[in-house]
Amino acid sequence: MQYFEYCFADRLFYDEPNRWAAEHKGYRQATMPVPDGRQTGAKGPWFNYMRTTSPPPKQGWKIHVSATRETAQRVLDITADYCLRQEIPFKFLVSEAAFIGRNLKCADRSGSGKFITIYPASDERLETILTDLDPLLTGLGAPYILSALRWKDGPLYLRYGGFVERLIRNELGEPAMAIETPDGDLVVDRREPVFYVPDWVEPPAFLADHLSDRKRSDPPADFRGESPSATSTRTTS
């Protein structure tokens, strides 16, 4: 999957994704003047807004914001404005080309849907950000992020993971992002298309209902389909 983005520029040959990306517009937050107290920088498909006064924690609960191609700039306008006013570090996919690449049919499902990532400094800030942004973003429409826990019915999701890049070798001997255990050991920060919480992490109390709802197997009330009991009573003639 690490070579996937090099398939975009040409149908027959691998090439730098920048050639294809140049045909798609970038999001305005990647070119606007940098506010005081902030530093910016691009890494791969991501554009970062970090604080100069204090770095974010090395790991914790992060917020992912999803969007559609049509609503992406509007979602970024709302989220970036909020994060800049509240002095919260965040990053976003730098251009429409990067957005498309992350959401194609063959893209890595563990990262699909992730358009913006926000880095709260604490669990208290996490709750505040979710509460503040939810009414501003709900209704804009967005794909589901398989690797994260959905917050209410909007485009906000969250998961526990690393905030800064720390690498170790996984079971295949490949470099992998890492998080730290309470004993100080580095372990792989699992990034799979399924929501996962490390064993030693105690989720904040305000997430209890969301975690409980996620475990339910009952279909939604408006789900169009027949129950197993209905289909099991059918017979053939």
Score class of each variant (00 low, 15 high):
N18P: 01
W46Q: 11
D213T: 09
S110E: 13
E171T: 12
P33I: 00
P193F: 03
Y144R: 11
L133C: 08
A9R: 06
D199Y: 10
R224T: 11
V197T: 13
A230M: 09
A22S: 13
S54E: 10
L158Q: 01
D36R: 10
A107Y: 07
L104V: 07
P155I: 02
S112K: 11
A176G: 11
C106Q: 12
S227M: 13
E127A: 12
A97E: 04
L149M: 10
T31C: 01
T31R: 02
A22R: 13
T52N: 12
D189H: 07
L84S: 04
F4G: 01
I118P: 04
L167H: 05
S122C: 12
T128A: 10
Y27R: 04
S227F: 08
S232W: 09
F47E: 04
R85I: 11
N18D: 14
P143V: 05
V65R: 09
Y49G: 03
S237C: 12
S110W: 01
V75Y: 05
I116M: 12
A21I: 00
P175D: 15
G139C: 08
A148D: 13
S54C: 07
R28F: 09
G184Q: 10
L186Q: 04
R85S: 15
V164H: 00
P57Y: 08
A178N: 02
F206G: 07
E174A: 10
E87M: 14
Y14Q: 14
Y82M: 09
R74C: 14
W46H: 11
R38F: 15
P220D: 12
I88N: 02
F99I: 06
I78W: 02
I88D: 03
N170T: 05
L149F: 03
R216H: 11
V188S: 00
I116W: 03
R166E: 13
T231G: 13
K152V: 04
Q86H: 15
L156C: 02
G154I: 04
L133K: 01
Q86N: 14
F13S: 09
P193C: 02
G37P: 06
E171L: 10
A121V: 10
P198R: 05
C7E: 15
P203T: 09
R38G: 03
L93P: 05
V34A: 09
T128D: 07
P135W: 01
V75M: 12
T71H: 12
P228D: 10
D81N: 13
P204F: 03
Q73V: 02
R169L: 13
Y160L: 04
L172G: 02
N103I: 13
S110F: 06
G162Y: 07
M32G: 09
D15S: 12
L126M: 07
E96K: 14
V187E: 00
T235S: 14
R69A: 15
Y144P: 09
P228Y: 08
I118S: 00
C83D: 07
G60Q: 08
P55V: 12
K25Q: 14
K58E: 00
T52A: 02
A142L: 04
A142S: 10
N103M: 13
D77Q: 09
A121W: 05
I179Q: 00
E165I: 00
